[in-house]
Amino acid sequence: MKPAPFAYKKARSLDEAIALLGENPDARLLAGGQSLMATLNMRLSAPSLLIDINGIGGLGGIAHKSGAVEIGALARHTDAERSATIAQHAPLIARAMPFIGHPAIRNRGTLGGSIAFADPAAELPACLLALDGEVDAQGPKGKRTIKAGDYFKGLYETALGPQEILTAIRLPAASADTRVGFAELARRHGDYAIVGLAASARADGKGLKDVRLAYFGVGNTPLRAAGSEAALARGDIDGAVAALDLDPHDDIQATGAVKKHLAGVLLRRVAAQLMEQRP
């Protein structure tokens, strides 16, 4: 299938893009396009205008500053994959990256696009939540920062307003006591996972504290597993699995019951990763 007709405009600045969004309520932003283009090609979405933000300067880049890793909205997955900054200061992202799509997809797909699209089965939204990161957004009323916990609102629904553009993702930089874990179960490499888990914690003696578990593929948004976090902090892995209060729906790949079981398996595997001493 071919896309339904639309107009195309390459925005030269954020202000221009924001203004275009205002003038064209059913316009869509085009960043990496690796999810959007597929929906356009299948005529599942038929916007009147595509606003290409790829030419806007200053939205790329990955930097370590003031205790945080700031990832520009247009940084490509490949940029993150190869970034020494990510490897050193955002190890959870580094762990997640190889699971995302395939090389040609990662060459084009952007981290900002993934967070803005907020696919509940995608890796990066869960990582953002697990790391308690935040996103910068800019709209007609100016800039604001949204905490990950306030950002994911529903199925493909975020706190971004209709005229707001995600400009950057900010993650707390890892410190010596940071522990991260990541695992997912996808039937084929690079596919969306049946269920996945991104986790962060801080070492506390031989135990853990500030455990944050973010599941993906089990609900309308990435989901925290609060009860399990507390149990894991106590070192009680069985308790953590028992406390999983997920209620995933059946989908094409697995029933809710299977997903829930697999969520428990992942919890044990990720817990083991969190307990590992860093090299």
């Binding site: 597929a38 299948m42 039937r187 084929r188 490499h189 690079g190 596919d191 969306y192 094409i252």
Partner: peptide, 15 residues
């Protein structure tokens, strides 16, 4: 229910 290549799983190289 799965009439597309994302949902109908053909064998790929890794597996």
């Amino acid at each position: 229910l799965n009439g597309n290549m994302a949902d109908y799983l053909v064998p790929m190289a890794v597996e």
